[in-house]
Amino acid sequence: MFADTIRITAVKTLVVNAEMRNWIFVKVETDQDGLVGWGEASLNWKTRAVTGAVEDLEPLLLGKDPRDIEQILRTLNKHSYYRLGIIGATAVSGIEHALWDIFGKSVNLPVWRLIGGKVRDEVRVYTHLGLGDMKSVYETFDPSALRDKALQVVEMGYDALKVVFIPYSHYTVDIPSRRHVGRMMETLRDAVGEGVDIMIDFHGRPASVSAALQYIEELIPYRPMFCEEPVQPGDTEALRMVSERAGCPIASGERLVGFKEFEPLFQQKALNIIQPDLNHTGGILEGKRIAAAAEQAFMGVAPHNPNGPLAGAAALHFDISTPNFVIQEEMSGAVPWYDDVVSTPMRRVGSAWQVPYTPGLGVEINEKEAAKHPFKPEVMHTLGAVLADGTVVDW
């Protein structure tokens, strides 16, 4: 048993290079022997900025009771004075995960019990081509390679997968590009059959509503589960126009920070599925607020998560306790030594995570093993987002 009064004594970061991405683990220590919490604050190409943000926020946490999560979040957001943006919000998210981990451990309960309890018996998940290999995810534009990689995912037991094969685009779409997208989708559907759901991530590449709709027209005959981020985030009206005309569900939200950035989507009913990233949008508690508002706007929730294992654990507890949850993105086993560095509560049976009952988030970190994979600069995939005439476009 732990004392009635618990105080935070330190907040630290541990960076683990997972080959194509750095994982930023956040460790919150307390004055109780053995009571620490772990969270994740990974943000691609911003590793040093986020670890610096966590260090800057640490003085606001020292001496606080880690179970006063709402009060701590108000302190982190309001006493920073300037709005935190994606870097600061990611740092806060990782800290918040760790606070829930401590809370659960302190009362010997899994986090999902503390945030609403269980509303489902398993959590449906999907993954990407290459099972997390970033080159496969972002650089598969050949139909035969697409087919082979998709079949590998299905053979692993998944009944849903997501692909990124929309070309780097501008304001208009040429006929060959449209036809290529159609061929890719036809190949994919023929390979996996109708029993596997397919999601297409546009990555915000089209620079206009008309360009997005032209690509969607090619995909519709093959019944996508949803098309994701067909236009850049932030333009609610453009997203609403796509959703109204698409003929299939539209999803977005991974790059939005906090409830306030999601609110216009709910007010205009601008899409069908929201995709908050609990690693970036402020944490689990903010995610629950977003999900509740989405439910009132007749929207499902499919949390974004191409991040590391602790982000996955946080998403698992969120999904178990969220009524309008649809499906969860995941990248477990993204590197061969995954299980040497971290043990997680995610146990997959077929295409579903099972419900864990271990206290807290259920994560254990082997810091000695983690030290074998120190920080490295990540691969800059974005450098390829250039058209033939030299125009830099959205990645």
Rank of each mutant, 00 (worst) to 15 (best):
D197Y: 02
R178G: 04
L43A: 13
R113I: 08
F298N: 11
G52T: 14
T382S: 01
R120K: 15
G94P: 15
T75V: 00
Q268W: 13
D159Q: 10
D142W: 04
W112Y: 09
G312R: 07
I250P: 06
I200E: 14
K78W: 08
N17V: 07
S243E: 05
K368S: 12
D389I: 11
V111L: 03
V231G: 06
R83M: 00
D148Q: 06
L256P: 00
V181T: 08
R223S: 14
A246E: 13
I320G: 11
A311L: 10
F318I: 12
A293S: 04
G132S: 10
C227R: 01
I87G: 00
P167S: 07
Y168W: 09
T322Q: 01
L213S: 04
N324S: 04
Y222Q: 03
R348E: 09
Q296K: 12
P176E: 10
G312F: 03
H317D: 15
D31W: 05
T9L: 01
A388S: 05
G116M: 06
R245V: 06
L383P: 15
A98D: 08
L213C: 09
V164E: 04
E96Q: 09
G157D: 03
D68K: 15
V50C: 12
L43W: 11
T322C: 10
G360Q: 13
C227Q: 10
E96S: 08
Y126L: 03
P66G: 13
Y222W: 06
P167A: 03
